[in-house]
Amino acid sequence: MKKIHILGTGCAKCKLLAEHAEAAAKNRGISYDLEKITEINKIMSFGVMMTPALVIDGEIKAVGKVPSVHEIEKMLS
């Protein structure tokens, strides 16, 4: 199971990133656990200073942008 963290305080881009990540996981038929991290101190504990950010299985994959569904599918493979 892939662990997906969405880092962001809850703005439109953070929500869009979560939607893209869920769509990408579903498209690839991957089981996943998606967690949204909205508290700034917790976000910073990932070593991320810009949001939104995408973390997959503990690895930072995107910072400060919203990758497309297709791009996230590649990140999940």
Binding site: G8, G10, K13, C14, M49, T51
Partner: peptide, 11 residues
């Protein structure tokens, strides 16, 4: 920590 959504067109 920068504000949320500091992305896209921000250099």
């Amino acid at each position: 920590m920068s504000d949320c959504c500091q992305s896209g067109n921000a250099t």
